[in-house]
Computed example of a mutant assay.
Amino acid sequence: MVSKVVFGRGSFNQLGDILSPKRLNVKAPFIFIVDDVFQGNSWITSRIPLAYEDKIYYISADEEPKTSQVDDLVEEIILNYKALPSGIIGIGGGTIMDLAKAVSIMLTNKGESKDYQGWDLVKKPAIYHVGIPTISGTGAEVSRTTVLTGPERKLGINSDYTPFDQVVLDPELTKDVPKNQWFYTGMDCYIHCIESLNGTFLNAFSKSYGEKAYELCVELFLDNNLTEEEAQDKLMMASWHGGMSIAYSQVGVAHAMSYGLGYLLGTKHGVGNCIVFNQLEEFYPEGVALFKKMKDKHNIDLPQGICANLSDKEFDIMIDVALSLEPLWENALGKHWKKTMTRDKLKELYLKM
């Protein structure tokens, strides 16, 4: 679990006080990995507490993080500084959160990041790392994974060393999120809840967090009486609780299939989950029905026909990626999931998208 968390409107202003005791020495910088949408936005950047040799790397979140991107950034940091950084601070959405977590791991572990895609392959603790989400829903700020697209698969670095050491949850930072992005990342959280609460890995710990996140999502996306500030606060808490729920259980069919879309087509995680989940009545009938109600209420038009012109070889690539995520399928369908989720069944579902 994340060992320290600060929540509250304006809590981003505490970042300097949080980081200063963690500075190793004046030559060991803090590296800030920041979504480039904030470049030139003084409301955010002027409050980043730079000192000594600290540096900001502005990173585009237009594409989800790749193992090659992690390796390039790690190499640049190692070559530019004589000492390991005092810490890595990620400021942005799920893409930036995952990138910050991956970089902090690879600064202390040998080899390439693709070698650590999987479960519990990381051998050495990451350097100190802090997550500051500027959009809510993905749960990346609390999860024990960092999802990366590698040369052969899209899969997270799942380990006990992945979670942030410190998270700053400031709902004010989410105030300018575009509507569609707000919906897609919010639905990522909602789908986390549905897959966790309906999974075979469910336990009292994950259930308590999942139920609270589900309750918050229903209120957020179907209640007309929330103020903008209330909605920001509640979605940030829903994201946290949803991330905690899957940390102690697992996600399911929608996420496994969405990884296939992401690997082959570059479909962003949130919208990919929505495209897939929209076709999963067979597995999550009540959850999908409520999702469609939320989608209609907010006038969201999902992309259509994204798999219409794919070749058999391309379908096989997506299917291979999806089927490689065995813990997700076992959570969704039980130990004998391979009898239910065949390659033909997966292709049939992808063809609906």
Rank of each mutant, 00 (worst) to 15 (best):
His336Leu: 12
Ile194Gly: 10
Lys297Met: 05
Tyr116Pro: 07
Leu290His: 10
Gly287Lys: 01
Ser143Gln: 08
Ile246Thr: 04
Arg9Leu: 11
Gly90Ile: 01
Glu215Ser: 11
Asp223Arg: 09
Val74Thr: 01
Gly111Trp: 03
Gly252Thr: 04
Leu84Met: 14
Met353Ala: 09
Lys175Gly: 09
Gly262Thr: 03
Leu121Tyr: 09
Ser113Val: 00
Asn225Tyr: 06
Ile135Val: 13
Pro85Ser: 04
Gly260Glu: 05
Met294His: 03
Ser42Met: 07
Pro21Leu: 03
Leu302Trp: 04
Lys335Gln: 08
Thr145Asp: 09
Ile48Gln: 08
Met257Asp: 04
Asp312Met: 14
Ala332Cys: 13
Pro151Met: 14
Glu228His: 15
Ala308Asn: 13
Thr149Pro: 03
Asp316Leu: 04
Glu75Asp: 14
Gly186Tyr: 01
Lys66Tyr: 04
Pro21Asn: 08
Ile31Trp: 05
Leu290Ala: 11
Lys55Ile: 11
Leu302Tyr: 06
Gly252Cys: 04
Asn299Ala: 14
Ala61Glu: 09
Ser143Leu: 11
Lys27Asp: 15
Ala231His: 03
Ala289His: 12
Gly287Tyr: 07
Asp301Ala: 12
Phe30Ala: 12
Phe164Arg: 06
Ser60Arg: 11
Ala140Met: 08
Lys55Ser: 11
Glu314Ala: 08
Ser136Cys: 13
Asp71His: 01
Gly186Phe: 02
Asp72His: 10
Lys212Tyr: 08
Asn309Gly: 12
Glu286Ile: 09
Lys347Ala: 04
Tyr214Met: 05
Asn273Glu: 00
Leu84Arg: 14
Lys123Cys: 12
Val177Glu: 01
Ile31Met: 10
Met244Val: 05
Phe315Gln: 07
Pro49Val: 06
Thr138His: 08
Tyr128Met: 02
Val26Trp: 08
Glu172Leu: 15
Trp329Gly: 07
Ser68Ala: 15
Asp17Arg: 12
Gly40Gln: 00
Tyr128Ile: 00
Phe12Trp: 02
Thr45Asp: 09
Pro303Ser: 13
Tyr248Glu: 10
Asp72Gly: 13
Ala204Ile: 10
Val218Asp: 08
Gly266Leu: 08
Val168Met: 06
Ile246Trp: 03
Pro151Gly: 15
Phe201Gln: 07
Leu222Pro: 01
Leu24Thr: 13
Phe277His: 07
Phe12Ser: 04
Ser249Gln: 00
Trp43His: 14
Ile317His: 02
Gly93Leu: 02
Ser42Thr: 15
Lys154Leu: 00
Tyr184Asp: 03
Lys82Tyr: 11
Trp240Ser: 12
Met294Pro: 03
